[in-house]
Design a binder for these strands. Sequence first.
DNA 1: TTTTGAGTTGTTCGA
DNA 2: GTCGAACAACTCAAA
Length: 473
Amino acid sequence: MSDSSPLILWFRRDLRLADHPALTAAVRSGRPILPVFIYDDVVETHGAAPKWRLGLSVAALANDLERLGSKLILRRGPALDVLRSLITETGARAVFWSRLYDPASKDRDTKVKAALTSMDVSAQSFDGHLLFEPWSVATKTGDFYKVYSPMWKAVKDRDVAGVLPAPAKLPAPENWPASDVLAHWNMGAGMRRGADVVAAHVCVGEAAALDRLATFIDTGIHRYKEQRDFPSLPATSRLSENLTYGEISPRALWHAGFAAMQQGAQGAEHFLKELVWREFAYHLAFHTPHITTRNWRDGWDNFPWSTAADTPEVLAWKQGRTGVAFVDAAMRELYVTGIMHNRARMIVGSFLTKHLMTHWRVGQAWFEACLIDWDPASNAMGWQWIAGCGPDAAPYFRVFNPDTQLEKFDADGAYTRAYLAEGQLAPAPKALAYYSAIPKSWGLRPNDLPPERIIDLKAGRERALAAYSASKS
DNA sequence: TTTTGAGTTGTTCGA
DNA sequence: GTCGAACAACTCAAA
């Protein structure tokens, strides 16, 4: 194997230059590096918002690579076909990438690795997407953790590898292969006018992600524990958006949070715990891949969920006009900003799966369409948890009451006022922005009457509890 | 092997 | 208004 043959660095959900073990290894190999991003229709998300946001991230990485004297080659198609052509075109003898752990990526990568190896091309995968590899955390009996708390106890004192520096320069190949033009991919096609609205709220690229982390550590982490549950407060890190695309590494977050904790920041440990929730979700997706598509726990397959995604009730839920203020504000936050506060996600999830007796997969699909921080593992776990069929399952009787939640977590109405225009003389900017983001076909206007409740909360709760009892007997 | 204690995020009801 | 108990039973992880 000639050292002068190029090495393909296959970027996927690791769109950064710092703390990138595959990149570090590629540089150390001494070979010319060919950075590639492949839009693989078979595996990639087709959600309108995450696809659009992915395009922004790819563009940012391409810019960053150019500053290092390199560039990002863009190709589209089944990953293995694309890699084969690039190998033929360039004489590359090695392909490096960062491992992914969701079922679709894992299956694809296994096949790619086998095929490349059989072609006598060195296919090497590296860590970096997680703090702890899924096979490196086990109970005393060697099983994977199915409950969060013991997993947290098992990992919280572990050493986490230090953050790797970004390279100063990338050795370029003598000849660059052809690249697609990102704009031609039309990654924002599904967003329509929504992109203009959400664009005001995104934070794209590695430098922006590092800034966001620094700001959070300086000004936010000390009040994280106390304020993170209040959706009107800017108390969360919002770094899920950047973690999703790998614009920043979980290890960078871990070390920043750990240092803050050692300096006495109240709430820093809670931030680390949230990072481990992400690990937990990925470990579950790795060991029980059916979590992304089927009820994780046995005994739920005969629960009488409605699977229709287009009933009037589900449509009202998606559009944020159920007449339940917390639910509607949250669903509009999703449309306007591309994210939704954690507490709000639980409330809309409980409302959909319990009050509306709708299958969690309907909600999961809508979140994939709308969330710029869409993550296959975290969302699968979250939806199954709130529906009751997942790990650490909420007892079935734990049905969130959106009115009670409003009193507890938005007592002054700041959150609902920010997103609900109806009935207000001077609606807030984000409440008005909703009408710019949604399709015209929904026929909604700021001066509509406030929507009527589509369901009585008490009756909905009782119906869900009765259905649970019946399905268990 | 058996036992023991615990399990992210809740609600309601009655004292 | 506040507070504790009830809401069920089961699974998980460690002792």
